[in-house]
């Protein structure tokens, strides 16, 4: 592994450009979806890249838990040989949490919606946000 690649890998949650992208995507996300309570981008190994809403401590904690969840989801999917885990939904009484990986990147989006939203709508906006993030990071790399 070259110095450069590993430096790039280290940086997601420390790279000001990536953090700015993430903030931009999250802002757009909350604009199109009023039922979004909270959202965060995190690295696969559980570092917060950027969040909307929530206090600092809470954001860090959610980032860690979401990374564990994602890994457990991946582990289950791998064990059942059903391919990679595309998204994970936790449905609770007053809302739900959706999380999914930013395609081709070691980064995850976790979003909390209130119960007013349909799961279908929430899923599609989350997917859009994740894919926007991917595009921006890739354009930067190019």
């Amino acid at each position: 592994m070259t110095e450069q690649v590993s430096a790039q890998q280290v940086s997601a949650h420390k790279d000001p450009v990536v953090i700015a992208f993430a903030n931009e995507v999250l802002d757009g996300f909350s604009d199109v979806c009023k039922s979004l309570r909270y959202a965060t981008f995190l690295t696969d190994d559980g570092f917060e890249v950027a969040s909307i809403a929530g206090d600092e401590k809470q954001n860090r904690r959610v980032a860690s838990m979401a990374s564990s969840m994602q890994a457990l989801g991946d582990a289950v999917a791998r064990d059942l040989r059903i391919g990679g885990a595309e998204y994970i939904i936790i449905a609770a009484e007053t809302g739900y949490v959706i999380q999914m990986r930013v395609p081709e990147h070691a980064m995850v989006l976790a979003a909390h919606f209130d119960a007013a939203e349909t799961v279908g709508k929430a899923l599609s906006v989350a997917r859009l946000a994740a894919s926007n993030m991917r595009t921006m990071v890739q354009e930067k790399a190019a």
Binding site: S6, Q9, V10, S11, A12, H13, T43, D44, D45, G46, F47, S64, S67, S68, M69, Q70, A71, L72, A75, A106
Partner: peptide, 18 residues
């Protein structure tokens, strides 16, 4: 998961759940 914290431990991946 891909380890982004190479200062703490210089290895490719790290356990994030169990």
């Amino acid at each position: 998961a891909t380890n982004t914290d190479r200062e703490t431990a210089d290895k490719d991946t790290t356990t994030v759940a169990l």
